[in-house]
């Protein structure tokens, strides 16, 4: 991986929504960084705050009800935490591109694809309309849409789901941003199309040397594209590390559960899929202790009373769990076992 330059650093981010029923503490102290040229995956159950975190970085959450309560966001050496909407406009689209989960609804139905790509170019660069359209066409070529000449004049409903997501990627990457945030880019697509879109993202990442943050539920996607993984639960990061560390030496009970609940490519016959029982806590009143305690097989008294601190497993591997405390009983890590048995 060579020498690592930090592109995005998020420090202790806290983000809430003020609703009529009270404050929803959606993100509660999240820290991570993204290095130049790498792909970071963020995984976790639905509603754990993945999208809110990324929208907070881009300042896309509607405010109010959204509210940044604390923390710092440093992008490319600039502290953008308190950027105004106007200042953010120069970053959005040109330095950070974003694609969303549902390609069917993410494109404006009454504007041609070409115009939607050209729009982002025209916004950030001083070029003529014709030039922007030419580059829009080139982008369609690059993302692998045939007949780009004709396609730029078509409307989203004339594109299939996969092609629309390609068009979204074309918009997001039109200005060669340093960072691409992809919020579940493949969830809404057929399996075969999913693989194509991921391949495309990997290709373009190499070609443009873009960093990628990919949000996903799909550990297969993680394994395919990511260099590092952040595991989130109930608005907090519970574990983060390189892909090998997370897949082969996971340390957090929630990560174990997550890994057991999805089929793995290297699955042995005896491995059964085990869903995680229960539901995540209510973010109106998050538990004072470890948010996972109510569902954790290893939960101890302390887990219900105080939140665990983050500990370092290695330079790249952090875990937030009381099991790492010296007083904690030794538990056998089911995955270390599994790997050991393999060897």
């Amino acid at each position: 991986m060579g020498k690592k330059e930090v592109l995005l650093e998020v420090k202790n981010l806290e983000y809430s929504f003020d609703t009529y029923a009270g404050e929803v503490k959606a993100v509660r102290g999240v820290s991570f960084e993204v290095y130049k040229g790498e792909a970071l995956a963020i995984v976790g159950e639905s509603g754990c705050g993945k999208s809110v975190t990324m929208h907070a970085v881009m300042k896309l959450n509607p405010e109010p009800p959204g509210r940044l309560k604390g923390g710092k966001i440093i992008f490319d050496g600039k502290d953008i935490t308190n950027y105004t909407d106007k200042e953010m406009q120069t970053i959005r689209g040109s330095e950070i591109g974003m694609i969303f989960q549902d390609p069917m609804t993410s494109l404006n139905p009454t504007m041609t694809i070409g115009k939607q790509i050209a729009e982002v170019i025209l916004k950030h660069q001083d070029v003529a309309k014709a030039e922007a359209m030419k580059r829009a066409k080139e982008m369609l070529d690059i993302v692998g849409i045939p007949n780009a000449d004709k396609r730029i004049h078509q409307y989203p409903h004339e594109f299939s789901g996969g092609m629309r997501q390609r068009a979204m990627i074309a918009i997001a990457l039109a200005l060669r941003p340093k960072l691409l945030i992809a919020d579940e880019p493949t969830t809404a697509l057929d399996v075969t199309i999913q693989a194509q879109i991921l391949d495309l993202m990997k290709d373009l990442q190499k070609q443009f040397n873009t960093s990628i943050i990919i949000i996903t539920h799909d550990l297969g996607v993680v394994a395919d594209i990511a260099d590092r993984v952040v595991v989130m639960y109930a608005g907090k990061i519970v574990e983060r590390g390189t892909i090998d560390e997370i897949f082969y030496h996971p340390q957090h009970p929630y990560t174990w559960g997550l890994l057991r609940s999805v089929p793995r490519l290297d699955a042995k016959k005896k491995d059964r899929l085990v869903p995680i029982i229960g539901t995540p806590p209510d973010l109106f009143a998050p538990p004072i202790g470890c948010p996972f305690a109510a569902r954790c097989d290893y939960a101890m008294k302390i887990c219900y009373e105080a939140p665990p601190e983050e500990t370092c497993e290695s330079d790249t591997h952090n875990v937030t769990c009381w099991l790492k405390h010296p007083y904690a009983p030794k538990v056998t890590n089911p995955f270390e076992m599994g790997v050991a048995a393999d060897e």
Partner: peptide
């Protein structure tokens, strides 16, 4: 700050009922 004693690290297990409590 909660005092960390060994006995706090006694295993008590999950509390599934609470995590599945029907709110309404």
């Amino acid at each position: 700050m909660i005092e960390l004693t060994r006995e706090k690290f006694e295993r008590v297990g999950p509390n599934i009922e609470e995590s599945q409590a029907i709110v309404r």
